[in-house]
């Protein structure tokens, strides 16, 4: 149900933007959902359709940009990929790695008319 709250938050942000930027219809919503954000992308897409009902983004297409997880190892200073936040550094085996990518959940842009 987390995903539903997020979808409703997206709706709020879109409605705010519609008022500010004077658009009446959203055709496409581009959102970034990081691999380490804890969000189920499929569940989010499902909730998105429900949450946009009767809003300016009713029926809008959702495009998800999935950013991969990554971090910086404080021990060796190198960048390392992360599939879980508690993964060890792929180079030297140290942990915890400081998460630098993949946590974000953002609305990037809207295609409107």
């Amino acid at each position: 149900m987390h995903e539903m709250s997020l979808a409703l938050a997206v709706r709020d942000l879109i409605e705010e933007a519609a008022e500010r930027e004077k658009f009446a219809k959203v055709k496409c919503v581009r959102a970034e959902i990081g691999a380490l954000s804890g969000v189920e992308r499929e569940a989010f897409a499902f909730c998105f359709d429900l949450a946009m009902k009767d809003s300016v983004a009713d029926g809008a297409r959702l495009e998800i940009v999935a950013t991969a997880g990554g971090g910086r190892c404080p021990a060796c200073g190198r960048e390392t990929p992360l599939t879980m936040i508690y993964d060890a550094c792929a180079h030297c085996g140290a942990f915890p790695v400081e998460v630098t990518a993949g946590k974000d959940m953002r609305i990037l842009e809207l295609e409107v008319e």
Binding site: L6, A9, V10, L13, A17, E21, F23, K27, A31, D104, M105, R106, I107, L108, E109, L110, E111, V112, E113
Partner: peptide, 10 residues
């Protein structure tokens, strides 16, 4: 049709 950049945290 136009693009509106938001770049806003959800």
């Amino acid at each position: 049709a136009r693009l509106v950049r938001l770049e806003q945290a959800i």
